[in-house]
């Protein structure tokens, strides 16, 4: 019965192994989780609550330059502007107004400046019922044709809302039609989307489309 030597051997080997494990852990040999890939912070423009356009009322409120709305700086009061059309009866936009894209209504049905502007007084707008409306009242002009949408807008259902839902605690902030829609081309413009979600794990590649 002489296994004392073997016991020593086994215990010695164990001690060596344990020391090895100790050293391995101290030296972080099992490794740490790889650092997560950097996710760039989203551009602050995506956090902006500003509307896509600025309305005439905004310009007045902000005391901005209103010279663009001074029609009789160029036009003459006594001479209503003359419209010209091409062979397809499409309005030819005069050079001085080349920033205007005529795109109101499908099939070019709304193809005449004086459907909304008053040719005898360019400083006002005119709905079909003959009223004169200031530029700051453009919402009423839009509403004169777009009745259901105007009704929705009045109820807060169409269009942007911000401020307070609880009117006892603060005011609701509603925007004009022209804060989002270009009156000459009202379809809401397409825009670049904000970045999509990043997965928890390293692969940032988008999975295959379904």
């Amino acid at each position: 019965m002489n296994n004392g030597g073997r016991t020593s051997l086994v215990l010695g080997a164990l001690a060596v192994i344990f020391t090895g494990i100790f050293a391995a852990f101290l030296a972080d040999l099992p490794g740490r989780p790889a650092p997560r890939p950097l996710i760039p912070l989203v551009d602050k423009s995506f956090l902006s609550t500003a509307t896509v356009r600025i309305s005439y009322s905004d310009l007045v409120k902000a005391k901005e330059d209103l010279s663009d709305f001074d029609c009789y700086g160029c036009h003459q009061k006594s001479k209503p502007p003359v419209l010209t059309f091409d062979e397809n009866q499409k309005l030819i936009v005069p050079k001085a107004h080349r920033d205007i894209v005529m795109g109101h209504g499908s099939h070019g049905r709304n193809n005449n400046c004086f459907n909304c502007h008053n040719e005898n007084n360019l400083l006002v707008l005119q709905p079909r019922d003959g009223r004169d409306l200031k530029f700051s009242e453009s919402t009423l002009l839009c509403g004169s044709c777009h009745g259901p949408t105007f009704r929705d807008w009045e109820a807060g259902v169409h269009g942007r809302t911000s401020g307070y839902w609880n009117r006892d605690l603060g005011a609701i902030d509603r925007k004009d039609c022209v804060n989002c829609h270009d009156p000459h081309s009202p379809k809401f413009p397409s825009r670049a989307p904000a970045p999509g979600p990043h997965s928890l794990h390293e692969s940032t590649a988008a999975p295959a489309a379904h």
Partner: peptide, 19 residues
């Protein structure tokens, strides 16, 4: 009494919130 952040930032007014 205020609107949620997602309502205020929506550029098209698709989000509606209330009592």
């Amino acid at each position: 009494g205020r609107y949620p952040a997602c309502v205020e930032v929506c550029p098209v007014g698709a989000r509606k919130f209330g009592n």
